[in-house]
Design a protein around this nucleic acid. Structure first.
Lengths: 329, 329
DNA sequence: CTGAAAGCGCTAACAC
DNA sequence: GTGTTAGCGCTTTCAG
């Protein structure tokens, strides 16, 4: 037996289909008694509105897509969780898309989904600005871990956080640090680099940069070797995964952390607390990033036309100090 | 300007809408010349088929849902990734749902999605058998990390794996081990317990069980304390997260691993290699679990009616031995 | 407050 | 090979 439709319900309830429709979509526009009657009949029949038929007409799908640069990066766990919770709270479905660090995959997937979703939350998008603007022209977009004027975004307060990192390292007497940059097209990588550099200038440290590196543990070896060559006494890796990979390689090469070199990461993933030594890292309320991003998106997809306002939210970070940083010995 | 429809394309191309439709849905049923003409016009107009209108008629949405018991469990990373890749390869969209260890949330979410997806992949479902059977009556279902007669499933070869664990521990002279059980309604928990027990009987070890425990690191303290009380010399935790939490607690209580007690986990998550001591754990090709599950699902949602066959796939496991297991000292 | 009827974008008979 | 014509399930004027 196929799913019952409003026709079945209408027939069984002895009313018109439009009344059934109204009972579900704007309950207050129908007599309380008939409404209840319809509901009970509908329940008996096991009727449930077909979202596609609804979407066909309204153009709204009650679905948002979240695109992440690499789904296996633990950093995204909390982001996804926060976004999912927020979406569900408004009875929205969250479609998860993995861009696998590939702008092409990212763009294709987004275009594929444009007709099916009400908006996009883009995590650390690797797409060029023009693409983002274009996508925003098709559907509301909220960026995470990236800022772009005229588009709403949610980021962690990296600039201040980077300053904190440099201060922390300076307090141990470090005078030369190196930033292991993330992917070329990562806005975060660019921003962190300039934040570190200016903090370095301010505090009188030399700051180098090498890379780009794919921010995975497996790429840590190359990054570590490069870092050693710079002669820096402190390494700031683009994220925790890379930092962990770096520490592994350093251990292999008998470089002691933090006695010979200090290591700092970003994200404060679960594993940062488990590796040895524990990784000093810049953390933040990641779940909130996801939550707020969806929040803004739902606002934009809401009945009120997207207002000119494009909120750019920056959430606070916190430097989690563990054992991977210290004075040279 | 609204999205162009087949009407716009048809008008611009000087053909009927059905021809446009055919050009896109069954290209070989239309003259090559007209087809190319239609395509080029469509491209100019930026036409893209509306999947909802399509779904409304065909009932197929090119979308599958994957439900996981807890999205923040790293164990799922690879599963999700494998599933996502496989889905995308067939141009299917993967909707990710987080059940948050709650059967109620899980069931509600599934019911919400029934009208919008072609099938479900259920990871470590916490639902009772009857519910699963009922859902399978609404849409094709493939289980992961759970078996149920008449439903297709993909699991890791836990039974043999558990045997391997017990053998490994026995080889170190352990004679008493305790299993820290996962959630009450976890099929895996039940299966592992009976597998461990029968392996214990066979090899002459005493095997206790305590729990259930929520398989997160934060619940490790209670689990560790309970384990100590049993007097067992080896602890087999329901998963790596719990095992890591247990090891933390043991360290706090100055119980040495593995000198005083050995610890084993399941899943071989990234962090298992990072904690100190490294965690011995039962791993497997998790990405394959997700991949194969979607593979089976797409077969079932395919044009050919769901055949009676319900493949029950069991993928091999491998015991990854690290430093958390050894002889007592 | 409720019914009748048109149509959202597309597909699937059925003709030609 | 292509056009015509009904709908898919629902919402939404417009009457009543």
């Amino acid at each position: 037996m196929p799913r019952p439709t409003i026709y079945d319900v209408a027939a069984a309830a002895g009313v018109a289909t439009s009344t059934v429709s109204r009972a579900f979509s704007s309950p207050n526009r129908v007599n309380a008694r008939t409404r209840e009657h319809i509901f009970s009949i509908a329940a008996d029949l096991g009727y449930r509105p077909n979202p596609h038929a609804r979407a066909l007409l309204s153009g709204r799908h009650h679905t948002v897509a979240m695109v992440v640069s690499d789904i296996t990066n633990p950093h995204y766990f909390e982001l996804i969780r926060g976004a999912e919770l927020r979406a569900r709270a408004s009875e929205y479905t969250l479609v998860l898309v993995n861009a696998e660090e590939s702008p092409r995959v990212e763009y294709d997937q987004i275009q594929r989904l444009v007709p099916s979703v009400d908006g996009f939350v883009l995590g650390a998008s690797r797409l060029p600005d023009e693409n983002l603007v274009q996508i925003a022209g098709q559907r509301p977009v909220v960026l995470m871990s990236r800022e772009l004027s005229r588009l709403p975004s949610v980021v962690l307060e990296h600039t201040q956080g980077c300053h904190q990192i440099v201060e922390h390292l300076a307090s141990f007497g470090h005078q030369h640090l190196v930033y292991l940059a993330g992917p070329r097209n990562s806005w975060m990588a660019t921003t962190r680099w300039s934040a570190l550099k200016s903090a370095g200038e301010e505090l009188g440290l030399r700051v180098d940069r090498i890379g780009p590196f794919t921010p995975k543990a497996s790429h840590g070896a190359a990054a570590a070797d490069g870092a050693i060559r710079t002669g820096a006494t402190a390494i700031v890796a683009h994220n925790d995964l890379l930092a962990i990979g770096v520490m592994r390689r350093l251990a292999q090469r008998s470089v002691r952390v933090p006695q010979d070199v200090s290591v700092v990461g970003f994200d404060n993933i679960f594993a940062a607390d488990l590796c040895t030594p524990g990784l000093t890292t810049l953390g933040g309320a990641h779940a909130d990033v996801g939550r707020v991003a969806v929040d803004i998106l739902l606002q934009a997809t809401g009945p009120l036309q997207p207002s000119g306002a494009s909120p750019q939210v920056a959430l606070p970070t916190e430097l989690v100090v563990r054992e991977s940083t210290g004075a040279r010995a």
